[in-house]
Nucleic acid binder design. Structure first.
Lengths: 237, 237
DNA sequence: CTCAAATCAAGAGCAGTGCTCACTATTGTT
DNA sequence: AACAATAGTGAGCACTGCTCTTGATTTGAG
């Protein structure tokens, strides 16, 4: 057992405190409100002291971003444990965004200027939900193939309208980067599943962004969930 | 004819210069790079002097936001004049976002902390595209009703799956705020059109955000248009 | 137990930001 | 020519991230 000296304990304690205060500051005032000097003040310490624990503001940002990705993915997982459906996933994301609007913006809004999230630290937690969605979409598709119950199921309708052949061709290339990303996680889906996944994903994230960022104007506070359900069900036809 | 004195001319000239420099700064370094002091420097004037022309940084922001909304809406209109379709609209937005990523973020990304865009100055230019989209969706629907050519057209499929009745009910309430917004612009559409419009809208904006903000990882530079076409066509089934 | 090494905190300082205020130039009007 | 409106100046306040030197404290090895 690697024993921890009191100093080490104090260190990780302080680091945790800094992250906690930082999270609270983002929650309260957005990412612009995140100030190392203010954190120092709150810790009752001079400003330069916090640089002993975080190398820079950007490093703290990375921690907060990783935290946020993990939190929302956990929340979604928990919700899906109750009822596994795309709607549940979407509503769980929406719910989390409502509780932490500024944290939502931190991960799904405009990236911070001159800050590049180190992919090796953020990719895995940042893709958990989308991967889950792809899984579920793939399952649904398998179910449909195994038991095609209604003629209304849009099987061949993918290749409707003109230019279907060319479309199919170029689609493969267009989906290549995403397929590659899934590959690296050991997943392999066909084009239809990937396109379906990305469509649902951008719609869900787009709707939440619109609501959180006030792009649709006011008056949506009481109908957010219904709107999301409406959009998701429209997508599921 | 109200004649303009040289001084007035110089004034609006300087105002235009400030806006132009501001736009360039946002284009180059994002909204965080917008600095009144830097503008003053570029104008060869002391920093406090610019406050003669803009009351505050926020006021300049409002100007830039209004500009951006107008520009992208103009670009979309121009594209639609060539070929009127949802895909054209989506691709035009995507194209504009590619040319002005930071301006895109300014209007469709995370809102600026402690800044509230004065609605009376931004609502009209900010809703032009969405209104156009609603128009087009409504037209398509009318066409489908006037000439129902294929049985594949999803007429009754709106009320599929369980809970259709309740769904329909709550949908009306959920769409109420949007309907109200359209009402104020003298437009009146039924629930189906509104839901369809918002679904397409959030998907298109969501996809562009994902691409611009790098949320899907790298490797999409050459396939953006195809991806958008794929998503839009998937939505149009 | 002592003493050097590692760690931590302090405080001053640099360069940058938005914004205000008192003051001086310049310009336009009567 | 005198007066008022406008334009520009420069100092200053409060804030930010970050660095560097100096001093205090804890740690572990001899």
């Amino acid at each position: 057992m690697t024993e921890t000296t009191p100093r080490q304990r104090a260190r990780i304690e302080t680091e945790a405190q800094i992250a906690a205060i930082g999270n609270r500051m983002v929650d309260d005032d957005g990412v612009d409100g995140l100030s190392l000097r203010a954190i120092a003040r709150e810790l009752g310490v001079v400003s330069s002291a916090v640089y002993r624990y975080v190398k820079s503001r950007d490093e703290l940002l990375t921690i907060l971003i990783r935290d946020a990705f993990t939190q929302i993915a956990d929340a979604v997982d928990e919700a899906l444990a109750g009822h596994r459906s795309v709607e549940t996933l979407a509503l769980a994301m929406l719910e989390w965004s409502r509780g932490h609007p500024n944290r939502w913006a931190l991960i799904y809004g405009t990236p911070i200027t001159d800050y590049e999230a180190p992919r090796e630290q953020t990719v895995v937690p940042g893709t958990r939900i989308m991967v889950k969605l792809a899984e579920m979409v793939a399952e649904t598709r398998n179910d449909a193939e195994a038991a095609p119950e209604s003629g209304a199921k849009p099987r061949g309708s993918v290749a409707t309208s003109e230019s279907s052949g060319r479309q199919r061709q170029s689609m493969v290339a267009a989906l290549q980067p995403l397929r590659q990303g899934l590959d690296e996680l050991g997943l392999d889906y066909d084009d239809h599943v990937i396109l379906e996944t990305i469509t649902i994903w951008v719609a869900v994230v787009g709707l939440i962004n619109g609501l959180r960022f006030g792009q649709f104007g006011p008056g949506f506070d009481d109908v957010e969930d219904d709107l999301m359900s409406g959009v998701v069900s429209r997508l599921g036809e």
